[in-house]
Design a protein around this nucleic acid. Structure first.
Lengths: 190, 190
DNA sequence: GCAGAGCTGGACCGGACGGTCCAGTCACAC
DNA sequence: GTGTGACTGGACCGTCCGGTCCAGCTCTGC
């Protein structure tokens, strides 16, 4: 059983979403069976199909969206009290590194693992693009707030996104969060 | 059937490796069934287990290694005639963008898709790390060749790797190779 | 021509997969 | 108390999974 199984205090639907997000993130959409998932969420099959009529794929979309919202919150708190854009970006990378260590150094990006390895499905692709663009937009807003010129803000937001995704991958391969912590050094001074 | 199915002129073993590399890259390890794979490679099940006694997992390791060697060649030709490091990096990004377009704008990194989404297996993880470090080392050698100081070369090689991986992901989500072509602009002048 | 290794073709297997279905339970309105 | 709708528990289903096995077909060396 997953050691990060959601608490029974949560509703069945929330437990399903959280279990799905956690399991898909580490093993990918096709790597997680319905039985594993149901056991982790401590929910029977009937509940899954009650809350998510289309079964596994509906649940995956919900799990990816939930995980994306968590990421948006992480971005928001990282930049909230930062004196500069770069300082906020650094905080974000360090927070991600910490989460990566806590997760057992194997979690990947929840959206990529859930939606890219899923069925060859237009809904999945559209959802992934929408969620990723949400992350970039969130960073962009903070860049604006620090007074960066629009083209610079655009550049920085995209750069940070690409660095984090690439760094996440390398961190996973090396099973070390050091890569994530070193990312801010790669950003040019704004 | 995969439109990029390997030619029958190749040996059965090579056809298996190429089919596996192509299919895993787009659908992930667990997303490809043995029957799909065998149909694409036009090989019977007996041949697979003759050439790869451990079946799917052996084949995945071989496919990832083959795909990684292709990438090393791509890096080598991109930097071979380049006047500067940055020019070589730009050529590499453009070549990747072209391949991405040819693939149907959905291919991911062959190593991540094959080994990260595979079984929770120490061999897979070790192989992924080894292959990625091979890519970084190859870029590092070229950086050396252009006379970059060791710490700068290290920095640049890691940066290029992270950019390409992150860019690849965003290109996939947006189904556009523009992201890959824009990557060189994100590298600081060395 | 013959022996034997290397390789192929495909039937077959047990189990796990995602999905369906419905009786049972519960909280709550009336 | 009774009716109602939301939710749960789990038996059950057909399909496809990865994997096994072996008969038979080459190809090669002699």
């Amino acid at each position: 059983m997953n050691t990060r199984s959601p608490s029974l205090a949560l509703s069945t639907k929330d437990r399903l979403i959280r279990s799905a997000a956690t399991l898909f993130r580490t093993r990918g959409y096709h790597g997680v069976g319905l039985n594993d998932l149901l056991a982790d969420a401590k929910a029977p099959k009937g509940s899954l199909y009650h809350h998510f009529p289309n079964g596994k794929s509906d649940l995956a979309l919900a799990a990816a969206t939930w995980a994306s919202d968590e990421m948006l919150r992480l971005i928001a708190v990282s930049f909230a009290d930062a004196p500069t854009f770069k300082s906020g970006a650094t905080t974000l990378c360090h927070k991600l590194a910490k989460l990566f260590d806590l997760s057992g150094k194997w979690d990947g990006c929840p959206i990529a693992a859930t939606l890219f390895e899923g069925p060859d499905n237009a809904d999945f692709r559209a959802c992934a693009q929408r969620l990723y663009d949400g992350w970039i937009a969130e960073v962009h807003d903070h860049a604006d707030r620090f007074g960066l010129a629009p083209d610079i803000a655009d550049h920085q937001a995209r750069h940070l996104f690409v660095l984090i995704q690439g760094g996440w991958l390398l961190a996973r391969a090396r099973r070390s969060s050091d890569v994530l912590r070193a990312l801010p050094d790669l950003i040019a001074e704004a």
